[in-house]
Design a protein around this nucleic acid. Structure first.
Ligand SMILES: Nc1ccn([C@H]2C[C@H](O)[C@@H](COP(=O)(O)OP(=O)(O)OP(=O)(O)O)O2)c(=O)n1
Ligand SMILES: [Mg+2]
Length: 1079
DNA sequence: GCGGATCAG
DNA sequence: ATGGCTGATCCGC
């Protein structure tokens, strides 16, 4: 209370300043006073209230927090746990009693303890807020007030009351659908969801305090008769589609906010409507929504409306009939404008559709008694063209003009179509419309006139909590400084100016004068995709990794389905104490690859497990999210990111070599060492070309972004690499080795595993292997070189363990030429390389050139300063070794011995040539695995991490913040039923194994069961029960093979090869993918 | 860019 | 005994 007093003192100061400042900005003040009812008793009231509550100055800074939400009345129950009765249909409840029950059920639970913790944190924030206030002096307050008034003046000038915005919201949506489809629920309190969480409840249940986001078991306590029905997302989606079809007719650019609500701008529509005929404003109304199944159940306005009109019109008395028979439809709400002009009834006779519609419109059917009057001629029955059944009795209702009638008509049509009711709000902006739609809920509408007076009056006593964007916490924080209504927001504007960010301040100020967005537009593209699951306590890391992989798999499927890729991978962990942690890692390039996502996620997860050790991490939820999304087609070609060839090519010297081809003789596998050597010999001369001779822009696919400044030897090389070329000419002069990077269309994969270095490549052939710390060989062979003769045929090159090419040292000069194959310093390099060819025609299409190009470069990491052997180059990565982020790739070692290796020491640091970071690795395998992951998941870090994006910090917060994206997969948006049978069809589709909590009473002792991915190819004969690791990827079927034994792997490849051509296999895969999608 | 928190539905 | 899931935004660092 003392705090509150002090607050109020501040408020008083504010008010005083206000008085002063009003003289300062006379123009605005006048305006405000005139139009704003500044002298309105209500405003006076507020001022008085402020003053009343202000006491003599109290300045101690650690006051008791003011009681908010009346928490003190509810012993023990923190405010955030108390019932929110802000929802429609929850007025006048016995809150005390309900909260008591909630408390009884909740106390002592982990959830509750966590809520208490969070509540304390909020209280701390409030205390901080208070401390901040203490530091504000008078002149600052005055300055804040001036700033606020300037802003308000600006806003006021921009106020536009010319729009008619509608917010439509279905009533108790999920519950209403379930009640519609199961009428026995109609008179019962019911909710949709499961025992652990409810999505929503019907209005009957709301009377008991049962509401959305409440656990089912608490709902049951509040209302023992509560019926809980599982959700059925397909139905909701389908209904949503129906209502959106209708909405689109009123505003084709309407903005759906969720399955059940949307904003519409009907400004234009209303004008258009003025010219609409009675027919066009008339809709069929079924006399009864519950007709026997023997009669047509279809939406008559869809199936019959046109027909009725055309037949009526053909009778030549179209409008006259309607206007003549302007019977009021009394049962129809508000009947003031909407009129029933036509009735139709029919016996069960099965005659063809009536041809004399006009005859069915009888004048005798006057006011109020449209129904119940006698059937007309039996011969006049309509039969539905869709279901063939006879149409039930209906009337025709004509709606008037203007916003009210338009919206009424829309709601009417929605009800006719779906047998569900909607509520609507009509106002000058979205913020107000949203508030209005709740006013006459359910099944009602409310329009706020588009006048400033009406708006201000409406806003005046409106609790801020009603405004979208102000939730429980904001309410509490604001209440702590005496703000409960929108008027309070205005009065405390100076304080708000000092306490909150410009964005929030702007947001509050707009609310305070009833302003909101008037631009109803669909949200831009989605910004993230995620999946998360709650399960019974989990503490075994292996289980966690398994689950994590499944989540990643599901996520990657979703990404591919939407044809997008992401760059930032994040995980979310919720401990059994409900502590939520999120971790994220941004890759250098976009991906939708399960493995890449998983490696990143696993790295993050591992770090958390480590951080927790030796205590086990005890989880109740895990999630994976991916953001920084980009449409597939806008992402850089995968080839470039997936081959170390492509990568090094950009980072080291670049060459655009003369086009030369060579004939790849070896088909099948086991390339002989001499073959490779031969290739090198063949290519070397041809590749020695003057780099400057070929202009970077010769190839149409070269874009500026593809051009990098690449030094190879200089110390500052790494910085240089990270800088996209500013001026082509200049850089070219600076360094003759700067070349363009050609984007090519291929799909390469690289994987390094165990002590093997291996690359598997598809489409075009790129292959690379890294071995040893100080040397690397890069090969990039354009498939066209040899694909001609193998068009539509698999071309596989297999370098067996034995045939690994060894080479003493890669000279700088050697970079100019080469052929497929890879060579390394160490002779323990077991290298597998696979090349599959792309058809010649495809190649030509891709390259845009008839001439084939062979790129072959050999690089030496050491020479290129990419291996960090001294501290100098580590500077270039801008990170000290101690600050190395734990990237996904760094985690690769633990694939093999997840737990044990965590504590292994003796790490070697090397500078990864791909991600350009210092990496601590225990051994070569780790390095190789790291590079592999980098290659798969990262691309040109130079380009993406140079931070060239212009910061676009707008101080204007959206009037409706936190607006959710509507383009998401909405069927997935809710999951409140985690019973044994999840009811979201996608729930099953997305995760192949069920980690969900077991149903109560389940005897299963394990928290979950794991099943392998449905990918049967993975369950190959090669599997010998070894722990799954990053497998070899078959170049033919592209399936990862778990077995590491090269012989077995080779035989797998042989088997694959014998099955058919690559194209056939690919086709099969495509087909099966399609089939899977359909399923 | 990351992590925590808030908000909506 | 049982306390969801998806997505967005903002803030502070
Ligand atoms: N925490 C929440 C809130 C809502 N929903 C779902 C179920 C609701 O049926 C639907 C629409 O949300 P509304 O807020 O519009 O609530 P209702 O439509 O159920 O009720 P009403 O709009 O009548 O208040 O979204 C959910 O899954 N979880
Ligand atoms: Mg609703």
């Amino acid at each position: 209370m003392p705090l509150e007093n002090t607050m109020m003192q501040q408020c008083l100061m504010l008010e005083e300043e206000d008085e002063n400042s009003n003289t300062g900005s006379a123009e605005f003040k006048d305006d405000w006073e005139e139009d704003e009812n500044w002298t309105d008793p209500q405003w006076e009231d507020h001022l008085c209230w402020s003053e009343r509550n202000s006491v003599a100055a109290g300045h101690s800074s650690n006051k008791e927090l003011p009681s908010v939400n009346g928490a003190c009345h509810q012993k023990g129950l923190v405010s955030r746990m108390m019932l929110n009765d802000d929802k429609a249909g929850m007025e006048g409840l016995d809150k005390e009693k309900i909260n008591q029950i909630i408390y009884e059920v909740s106390k002592g639970s982990r959830f509750y303890e966590n809520e208490k913790k969070k509540d304390e944190q909020v209280n701390k924030r409030i205390q901080e807020q208070y401390d901040k206030i203490q530091k504000i002096n008078e002149s600052q307050l005055k300055q804040g007030l001036e700033a606020a008034d300037i802003l308000l003046e600006e806003l006021e000038r921009a106020r536009d009351l010319s729009y008619t915005i509608v917010h439509i919201d279905m009533d108790a949506f999920y519950a209403a659908v379930e009640m519609r489809d199961n009428p026995s629920l109609k008179d019962k309190p019911m909710a949709v969801g499961g025992n652990s969480m409810l999505s929503t409840s019907n209005y009957h249940a709301r009377k008991f305090g049962v509401r959305a986001a409440m656990p089912g078991f608490i709902g049951k306590k509040l209302c023992p008769d509560l019926v809980i029905v599982p959700p059925n997302f397909e139905k909701y989606t389908s209904v949503s589609r129906q209502i959106r079809e209708i909405m689109a007719e009123y505003d084709p650019n309407f903005c759906p906010m969720s399955l059940d609500e949307a904003y519409l701008d009907i400004t234009e529509y209303i004008k258009k409507r003025e010219k609409m005929s009675d027919f066009e404003r008339s809709y069929i109304c079924r006399d009864s929504q519950n007709v026997p199944l023997t009669l047509c159940q279809c939406d008559l306005n869809r199936t019959l409306r046109e027909k009725v009109f055309s037949q009526t019109a053909s009778d030549g008395n179209s409008n006259s009939v309607l206007s003549h028979l302007s019977n009021k439809c009394s049962h129809f709400e508000n009947g003031s404008c909407s009129q029933c002009v036509f009735t139709y009834s029919c016996t069960s006779s099965n005659n063809s559709a009536g041809s004399e519609i006009s005859s069915k419109t009888t004048e005798g059917r006057s006011s109020g008694q449209m129904v119940g009057e006698q059937n007309l001629h039996e011969a006049e029955c309509f039969s539905c063209q869709e279901c063939g059944k006879i149409c039930p009795e209906f009337r025709l209702v004509t709606f008037g003009f203007g916003a009210d009638e338009s919206v009424r008509e829309m709601r009417f049509r929605i009800e006719q179509r779906t047998r569900l009711t909607a509520s609507a709000g009509i106002a000058a902006n979205m913020m107000l419309a949203k508030v209005c739609s709740d006013k006459n809920k359910p099944n009602g509408q409310y329009r706020l006139p588009n006048t400033r007076d009406a708006v201000m009056q409406f806003i005046k006593d409106l609790p801020i909590r009603k405004i979208s964007g102000i939730g429980k916490v904001s309410e509490k924080m604001l209440k702590a400084i005496g703000i409960q209504t929108c008027t309070d927001l205005f009065n405390q504007r100076s304080l708000l100016y000092h306490l909150y960010s410009p964005i929030s301040f702007n947001y509050f100020m707009r609310i305070s004068i009833g302003m909101g967005s008037t631009t109803v537009e669909r949200d831009s593209e989605r910004k993230s995709i995620s999946i998360e699951r709650t399960f019974r306590e989990m503490d075994k890391p292996s289980d966690m990794y398994d689950l994590c992989r499944e989540l990643c798999h599901a996520l990657s499927e979703d990404l591919r389905e939407e044809k997008i890729k992401g760059r930032t991978v994040g995980i979310k962990l919720k401990t059994v104490a409900f502590d939520v942690k999120t971790r994220a890692y941004t890759l250098a390039n976009h991906t939708s690859d399960t493995d890449v996502i998983y490696e990143a996620a696993r790295g993050l997860l591992r770090t958390e497990i480590q951080t927790c050790a030796p205590q086990p991490l005890r989880l109740r939820l895990m999630g994976v999210r991916i953001s920084s999304l980009l449409h597939e087609s806008l992402c850089k070609r995968e080839k470039r990111q997936n081959t170390i060839t492509g990568f090094i090519k950009q980072k080291s010297q670049k060459q655009k070599v003369e086009q030369s081809s060579f004939d790849l003789q070896a088909v099948g596998h086991n390339i002989e060492p001499q073959f490779i050597e031969q290739g090198v010999d063949i290519l070397q001369p041809a590749n020695k070309v003057d780099l400057l001779a070929s202009k970077p822009t010769v190839d149409s696919k070269v874009t500026k972004q593809d051009i990098y400044k690449c030094h190879t030897v200089e110390d500052e090389s790494l910085q240089a690499i990270e800088t996209p070329m500013q001026s082509q000419d200049r850089t070219e002069k600076e360094d003759p080795r700067i070349v363009d990077v050609t984007v090519q269309d291929s799909d390469c994969r690289a994987a390094v595993q165990d002590s093997h270095c291996r690359a598997a490549v598809q489409d075009e052939d790129c292959q690379a292997a890294v071995q040893d710390v100080d040397s690397v060989a890069i090969v990039h062979v354009e498939a066209t070189a040899y694909s001609a003769q193998y068009e539509n045929n698999r071309t596989a090159v297999f370098i067996s363990k034995d045939s690994c090419v060894l080479k003493e040292k890669v000279n700088k000069d050697d970079r100019t030429g080469g052929i497929c194959g890879s060579l390394l310093k160490s002779n323990k390099c077991p290298l597998n390389s696979f090349i599959s060819a792309k058809s010649l025609s495809e190649q030509r299409r891709d390259s845009g050139s008839n001439d084939e190009i062979n790129y072959f470069q050999l690089g030496d990491l050491k020479e290129m300063n990419l291996i960090n052997l001294d501290s100098k180059s580590s500077d270039s990565s801008k990170q000290s070794i101690n600050e190395i982020p734990q990237t996904a790739a760094e985690d690769v070692t633990n694939t093999f011995n997840r737990e044990s290796s965590i504590y292994q020491a003796d790490l070697v640091t090397f500078l990864c040539p791909v991600c350009n970071k210092n990496i601590s690795c225990a051994n070569e395998e780790e390095i190789n695995l790291h590079i592999d992951v980098c290659l798969k998941g990262q691309e040109h870090i130079d380009l993406n991490q140079t931070g060239f994006q212009t910061p676009d910090y707008s101080k204007v917060r959206k009037s409706t913040p936190h607006k959710t994206n509507v383009n998401r997969t909405e069927e997935n948006s809710n999951q409140t039923c985690n019973e044994s049978q999840p009811h979201d069809s996608n729930y099953h589709r997305r995760l192949s194994s069920t980690h969900e909590k077991n149903q109560s009473g389940s005897k299963q002792t394990e928290p979950f069961t794991l099943s392998r991915e449905d990918d049967s190819v993975r369950e190959t004969v090669l599997s010998d029960g070894k722990e799954e690791i990053l497998g070899l990827i078959c170049p033919v079927c592209y399936m990862e093979q778990r077995d590491q034994d090269l012989d077995i792997f080779n035989s797998h490849v042989d088997t694959c090869l014998s099955k058919g051509t690559i194209s056939q296999i690919l086709e099969e895969q495509r087909q099966s993918e399609k089939a899977n999608l359909k399923r």
